[in-house]
Structure formats: structure tokens, C-alpha cells
Nucleic acid binder design. Structure first.
Lengths: 337, 337
DNA sequence: CTGTTAGCGCATTCAC
DNA sequence: GTGAATGCGCTAACAG
């Protein structure tokens, strides 16, 4: 039924070794035999079996990707960056959603390893000891995207979330704001949650602005959450003049709550955040935000992984922890007080 | 270095067949030996090699997904639907972006088939003869998502794009509009382009409204395109009172052009479209649109594929072409004239 | 219930 | 340049 390398060999009147050589572009084949083999391949409609090849060569040219949620725009951009570079280096991607659930993450890491991927790209919630444990059982390289482990034991590419948040809040302060509220993510989340909150705190401290507890509320990163949490700030006696949200989605949600309550952004209340999702420039007013280059993080991670897979890098290199630059995108949601 | 099923067998004092049985949950193993084997597995840190398993069993429990662009929200929702169901049936997903480029699509179909996927999910641009040709070389089932081939030769799941567009335009007409412009996709695109345009035309005809050439403009589905194309309508002597856009993104772009030019939506001009992306309810006014259930299309496609892979379905079944229902979502961008 | 035996389709020595 | 032989790690009869 299925035509194998052996069938091609017989059809072309050569050995299977020779067929293997031409299929793999080995130069040690006389042009004439090469031609014969190609013709036989064509005639028989031969398609190499990558599974058999993988077993024999111990390489599958596929990498595993563990991602929280592919339907979330922030991650789908990252995935696109990964795939583009993977494609460029002739790798395929096995994609697994894990929803930041620890046990699901561990589970998919293991099945990916069982599938003999040549490398692994991981982005998720916190990197716990259990994760590290699972990573250590891997014989193939692993790169953490948009996250990192505490001890820098694994390669990673990310931005400096703390500094990004700091920069956002600092812009507010430079514009004369002192009553600055924050819609944070959960503080259990080291990157988008904790680090961004730390940046907010540091910026306030640097300007001698006391931290007010009623100015900080926790959301879940999503639009609906921003919509909800912003209501709280509206009810305060002393309303904030600016809101810093940990993510664009929450910022846009907050903007809409303000607008739906008759307030103008930025005239009455300024809004700023971190991410720069596509939607940030698709709302009115357009959102001022700190760009987190998701596509680039994906692309750079994948590139780093290819190097690791080819052992191009010396082990404990400086390349292992890359921090990509972030950038303040000035749009129309921040006003001078 | 790597521990194999043979090592486990030796460690547990049984044959490799027995180890294989316990790993694959074959009931024909005495509980006691099962226990011994599990202990050996644990002790050695054995991880089954799915590639070897795939070669021996001729099943890889992975399916290939060809998608235009995972970073496009409409497709990433679909991908999520696919992945959730795949996960439920213990399949993994190899994801390939093909950007609706025919040759790239053909290429990835072939590499996916080389990787011995157990099935293929295809969504792309037009399904040409070359595609059909490639599909026919496949020995594994294929399901087309959010598209279909002209002869219904392959299984597919989609919505009725023509009717969806018709319903949208009909709502406009019911609200008293007669000057209805359309921002269409390219007419080469059978589903999102041509079919939606046909629905627009039929709705006008049904209401005896003559089709005006200056009321139809072609965009590329994206926000920026809607932004741009809408300007044209503003310059017309007889401005439309309503705009039907083939996609939400273009509709939102159009809305913003209108608003940026001092017009109110829907008071001055109504806007409606098809898709119901998440953003449709995240703009002001919230967009009235016909929901295309992308997640469901993905989920149903994958479910259908599992059936095909298990040969659960009789061949020429009615199940093969499924059309999912669409639904008019009434929000705030359409006004009575 | 368990072990033996063959492959699965290919890459890869090693000879020639 | 080319061919023969071996094995990658596992499943799947088949026997017992």
C-alpha cells in the first residue's frame, strides 16, 4: 500500500542507501543515478516517512510549544513569532495550550518529550520547582519565553516587566499625576503580576508618593476584569487622576467604564498600561502603553532554541538570559494635569 | 543513556511485551506484575518513545493543522476549539501558518503528511485543484474548516456565509435603510469574499433596492483597510445611511473613520458586519454583527476528524458537510432610520 | 497471563 | 560512488 524507500530502490535499480542519500541531499551520488532515483520517486509518488526517519536519526525536526492560551492575542502573536522562525529553520511546532494550570503544564511537557521533540519552548505562569524538575528530565534544550526561573537555570527571553511598569507610571508622574491607581494582576504571577506591581511601587517611591491601599485592585488581566475593577475607583472619595493597568485589556476595560460613566479619557482620568496589543490603537482614545514585543520574544526564543539544538552556543554563555527592550508608545490616553 | 522498554523489562524481570502491555493499559496483566513494572519504570525514569511507537503502530496521535495566520484573532479562536477537542481525545496538534498562500499551503500539507499525522485540518483561502490533488494523495482523513471545496468531495464544517451576510443586510433594510454600502473582501475568496457579497446583493434584490457600484468597495479584511475604505463613502454626494462590512475588523475601522470625522454611529450612519470577534463588544458603540462561531467550527471539525480517524462514520454520510448556525447579535451600531 | 519473534521505514556504519 | 547489514524503540501477532 504505502511506498517505501525500498520500493524506490527497486524501481530505480539501486540500493536503499542510495535512495536515502539522494533524499537527504548527500552530495556523494553520481548525477545520473540521482536522476534515476528522482524519477522513480516521482513515478511511485514516494513520500519519506518522517517517523521512521526520526527513529533512525534521533531527530524529529519538531519542537514543542507550551502556551497558556492560543486564543489570547498576546500569546498568539508570540506563537506567530515562534512559528515564523521555526519555519525558517525547517522545524515544525507542536502546540499545547495549558491555561497556566500547573499540572496541565507538567503533563504536556512530558507528552512533548515523549514525542521526541528536538527542543521545547515554555511559557506559562510561575515556574515552580515541579516545572524545574520536569525540565531537568529533558535531554533536549528548553527556552522559557516571556518568563524566567528564579535561578536563571534555564535559557529565557523576556522583557524587564518591573522597569516597563516603572516607565509607564513615571510618565504619569511627569505629567503631574500623583493620585495614581493601579489595576494589577495577581501577585502570585511573577512577571505580569508581581513585577509590574513592583514597578508601580518603585515609581511612586521615587516620586515620594505614598502608596495607598485603596488605589490598588487586582484583576485577572482580561477586559471584563478592567471593566469591573474600574468601578471601584469611581466610588472613591478622592478619585485617582490616572490609572495604570497591568495589561492593555484591563486598561481598555477601565477606559470604557470611565466613558460609560460620563468621564472623559484622558481629560478627566488618564489611562496607561503595558503590552501594546493590536487593539490598543483600535480604541478611542488610542491607548498610551509600554510595548511588550511579543512577536520578537517568540522569534528570539525560537532562534535561541535553534542554536541550542545545534549546540552552537557555549554552555554558560551570556546569551542564555535575554532581555528584550520595551518601548513607551505615546498615544492619546494620557493628559497633563 | 536513554532508557528503553528493554531496560525496564530487565529491571522488572519480565519481557518487553509485558512492559508494553502495562504502558498501554492492556488489562491482560496480573496486578502484581503490573506493580513490579511500574516500580521499574519509576526507578529508571522511563519515558516511552512516541516516535518508535508511531513507527510500530502506524499511529502518531497527532493531527496537522493548516491555518492562515495564528496571530489573527479569528483563527486563533478556531485553533483553540481544535486544540481543546484534540486534547480531549488525546491528540496533539502540529500547527502550520500558511498565510493563504497556495504554494505554502501545499508545501505544509506535504510535510504534515510526511510526519504521518493521523488526520489533517485545513483552513486557507480558496480550495483549488492543486489542493484537491494534494488532499487526494493523503491516506488519512481531512476536514476543511471554515471553508469547503466546490464539489463537496471532502468533509467540511463552515457556516452559510451568504445567508449570514443576507441576514445582516436584511436587518438594515428592516430598519428603514435603503442606501446601504458594503465593504467587501476580495471576490476571489469564495467564503468571506464572494459569498458574503452575494448575500448583500440578494438582500438588496429582495427589497428591490438597486445595486450601486459606488456603494461597494473592496478591503483586505483588516482594521486599517476598513479605516481607509470608509473614507470613500464619506466623499459621496449621496452618502450611505448604513455600511455593511464583510468582517468585524473592517466594520470597526469604518466606525472609527466615521467618528473621527465627527459622525455619530449609529445616529448618522449605521454599521453592521459578520464575525463577532471578541473586540466587537469592546468598542463604543458596541458592534451589531452576525456571529460566526469560530471556536465551535474548530471544535466540531476536530470532533468530526476523530470520527473519521476511527472510521466511526459510514463513508458517504450526511455528516460530511456540516453547516453551523450563525446568529444575529444585536448591539448598538444599528439605528432605525 | 506472559514471552518470543518479527517487522515498522529509515539512517548509518562499514566494506567494496 | 554504491551496496549490505544493522539497529533505532516499540507494537502486534502468535504461542504457550
Amino acid at each position: 500500500m504505502t511506498v517505501t524507500i525500498y520500493d524506490v530502490a527497486r524501481e530505480a535499480g539501486v540500493s536503499m542507501a542510495t535512495v536515502s542519500r539522494v533524499v537527504n541531499n548527500n552530495p556523494n551520488v553520481k548525477p545520473q543515478t540521482r536522476k534515476k532515483v528522482f524519477e522513480a520517486i516521482e513515478r511511485l509518488g514516494y513520500r519519506p516517512n518522517a517517523v521512521a526517519r526520526g527513529l533512525a536519526s534521533k531527530k524529529t525536526t519538531t519542537v514543542g510549544v507550551v502556551i497558556p492560551d492560543i486564543s489570547n492575542t498576546i500569546f498568539s502573536e508570540l506563537a506567530r513569532g515562534i512559528e515564523d522562525i521555526a519555519n525558517m529553520y525547517h522545524y515544525n511546532i507542536i502546540l499545547c495550550n495549558a491555561d497556566k494550570k500547573k499540572d496541565k503544564e507538567i503533563r504536556v511537557i512530558n507528552t512533548l518529550l515523549e514525542k521526541q521533540v528536538d527542543g521545547l519552548l515554555f511559557m506559562g505562569g510561575a515556574v515552580t520547582d515541579e516545572h524545574l524538575q520536569a525540565f531537568k528530565t529533558s535531554s533536549v534544550p528548553i527556552v522559557l519565553c516571556a518568563t524566567k526561573d528564579d535561578n536563571n537555570a534555564f535559557a529565557s527571553v523576556d522583557i524587564n516587566h518591573e522597569q516597563a511598569a516603572f516607565d509607564a507610571v513615571e510618565l504619569l508622574i511627569q505629567n503631574g499625576h500623583r493620585n495614581i491607581a493601579m489595576i494589577s494582576g495577581t501577585l502570585q504571577d511573577p512577571a505580569n503580576g508581581f513585577a509590574r506591581y513592583q514597578g508601580y511601587k518603585r515609581a511612586l517611591e521615587a516620586a515620594n508618593i505614598p502608596l495607598r491601599e485603596d488605589y490598588v485592585r487586582i484583576g485577572n488581566y482580561r477586559y471584563e476584569s478592567g471593566l469591573e475593577v474600574a468601578k471601584h475607583f469611581l466610588e472613591l472619595n478622592e478619585r485617582p487622576t490616572a490609572i495604570f493597568a497591568a495589561t492593555d485589556e484591563m486598561a481598555i476595560g477601565a477606559m470604557h467604564t470611565l466613558q460609560d460613566n460620563g468621564l472623559r479619557v484622558p481629560e478627566d482620568i488618564s489611562v496607561i498600561s503595558v503590552d501594546n496589543i493590536r487593539m490598543a490603537s483600535m480604541v478611542r482614545p488610542q491607548l498610551t502603553t509600554v510595548a511588550m514585543p511579543m512577536y520578537d520574544i517568540g522569534a528570539v526564543s525560537m532562534r535561541l532554541l535553534t542554536k541550542l539544538m545545534n549546540k552552537e552556543t557555549k554552555d554558560a554563555s551570556e546569551l542564555m538570559q535575554v532581555i528584550l527592550p520595551h518601548e513607551l508608545i505615546h498615544r492619546n490616553s494620557v493628559a497633563h494635569l
